[in-house]
């Protein structure tokens, strides 16, 4: 591979996990209470994919990274203020819903269509990256559906490592049970990788990179087309957050051993 890769990362925003995420019913289906008002972050799974993409691009001359994001434009802009300072990429935004209750099929269709519309994208050099899961509501299906629509046959999910071999092939480590990895070899692009966490740290902040990215990010956001996501026949019977259980007793003068014993017994129930 002498010309470099064209790496398209699919990733959007999710509400900051520290926020109170309370499902509510709206006329159009379930949503999170005050979602537009809550601070957002780049979906952590997609963020890993983006950092891996940037890392790969930095090692292979001629490579380029696009970040295709389907989400509310205003939210994307806020998140870009952080993410754009991490790595170099070109943003391809689509102003639409990033709700965790969106239909994976509709989202995948929109993503695939957007990827296909990227000018100058060379399929023979194409690597599609994304999160294997999502922090919003992990259907775990979106990336596979994107791959199908793009007719990419080589797909890997739960990827933790991607190594380029001397002959241009990839060695891919995918997560399997019991903390082990399945090792595969892929001949080369086009291929799709749904990333788990990878093994890269969060890149350090670089305002110079941010300023360079912003020259294209802001115009791209202004141009972003608005695309409603069809429900695609999906409907939810109910939506509830995971239950939290709190059992508190005020007890004084217990020794650490007694406290540990009590906790162990409680866990064992």
């Amino acid at each position: 591979m002498t010309d470099g890769y064209h790496i398209v990362v699919c990733g959007s925003v999710v509400p900051d996990p520290l926020q109170t995420l309370e499902p509510i019913e709206t006329p159009t289906g379930p949503a999170l209470k005050n979602e537009m008002m809550l601070p957002a972050v780049l979906d952590p799974w997609a963020a890993h994919a983006l950092y891996e993409a940037a890392n790969l691009a930095s090692k292979v001359t001629g490579s380029k990274v696009w970040l295709v994001s389907v989400g509310p434009k205003a939210k994307l802009q806020q998140v870009m203020m952080t993410i754009a300072q991490r790595v170099s990429f070109e943003l391809v935004p689509v102003d639409s819903s990033a709700s965790g209750f969106a239909d994976a099929h509709s989202t995948a269709a929109l993503l695939a269509e957007t990827i296909q519309s990227i000018a100058g994208l060379d399929r023979s050099r194409l690597l599609v990256f994304g999160g294997w899961e999502s922090a919003s509501r992990g259907a775990g299906a979106t990336m596979q559906l994107v791959g199908e629509r793009l007719e990419i046959l080589d797909q890997f999910q739960g990827v933790d490592q991607l190594s380029v071999q001397a002959d241009g092939s990839f060695e891919v480590l995918e997560r399997i049970e019991a903390g082990r990895h399945q090792v595969s070899v892929c001949q080369g692009p086009p291929a799709l990788f749904g990333w788990a966490t990878g093994n890269l740290p969060e890149p350090r902040n670089n305002p110079q990179v941010g300023m360079a990215n912003m020259r294209t990010v802001m115009p791209a956001l202004q141009r972003a087309k608005s695309e409603p996501l069809p429900a695609g026949g999906l409907h939810f019977l109910s939506a509830t957050p995971p239950k939290q259980q709190r059992q508190t007793r005020v007890v004084k003068d217990l020794s650490p051993e007694q406290i540990a014993q009590e906790i162990a017994e409680w866990i064992g129930k």
């Binding site: 008002m37 601070p39 205003a74 203020m81 754009a84 305002p207 300023m211």
Partner: peptide
């Protein structure tokens, strides 16, 4: 009031909603 004031609201109040360099600086 429904939530604590967001970054976007603060950017308007303190007049840097059109300054992405400053918005990035805040995040840094």
């Amino acid at each position: 009031l429904r939530t604590l004031p967001s970054d976007a609201a603060r950017q308007i109040q303190w007049r840097f909603a059109d300054r992405y360099d400053l918005q990035m600086l805040v995040q840094s």
